[in-house]
């Protein structure tokens, strides 16, 4: 992936030199030509086309924004209820992600999603402890976190 980005930058700089116009616009034009070349010559370059991974990152960002808005609406609903119903509690979520920054990302995402707040991470990085507004539907929230966030993060990082 890094190799492909370097090639792309080199093509963009070459395009600037060939045009003899050293502006940002010509750099962008060269970068777009580089993307096209990389896409066409994909078979001869190691690794898959890197924009595919960039697309997955964008998908993750949109997922994040959607969950953020949903969680806010839920919190606002709870705030304005006359008698708010709470059944809070802390539950444990087994982690499949291994590296530190993946877990950091997951904890951030969990905190900004509906009804969950990450409290702590186990010493051996095997579990994450989550405070939930409604402890009843633990299984539901475990499944949704596993299916959406962990999968999306894994697609980006591996």
């Amino acid at each position: 992936m890094a190799f492909q980005i370097v090639i792309n930058l080199i093509i963009a700089c070459m395009w600037m030199f060939l045009n003899e116009s050293y502006t940002f616009a010509s750099f962008v034009a060269g970068y777009l030509w580089g993307i096209l070349l990389l896409f066409l010559l994909n078979r001869f370059i190691p690794d898959t086309f890197y924009l595919r991974r960039v697309g997955k990152v964008i998908k993750l960002i949109f997922l994040f924004i959607r969950e953020l808005v949903l969680s806010n609406i839920e919190i606002v609903k709870l705030v304005y209820k006359r008698q708010p119903q709470f059944e809070p509690g802390i539950f444990m979520l087994p982690l499949d992600l291994k590296s530190n920054w993946e877990i950091t990302l997951l904890a951030n995402l969990i905190t900004l999603t509906p009804g969950t707040l990450s409290v702590a991470i186990a010493h051996d990085n095997s579990h994450i402890f989550i405070h939930a507004m409604h402890i009843d539907d633990i299984d539901e929230s475990i499944r949704s976190i596993k299916d959406t966030f962990e999968k999306a993060i894994m697609e980006v990082t591996r």
Binding site: F86, E87, P88, G89, I90, F91, M92, V119, A120, F129, I135
Partner: peptide, 9 residues
């Protein structure tokens, strides 16, 4: 404050 003492941590 927990419902039926569910504090896994």
């Amino acid at each position: 404050v927990t419902a039926n003492r569910s504090d896994a941590y």
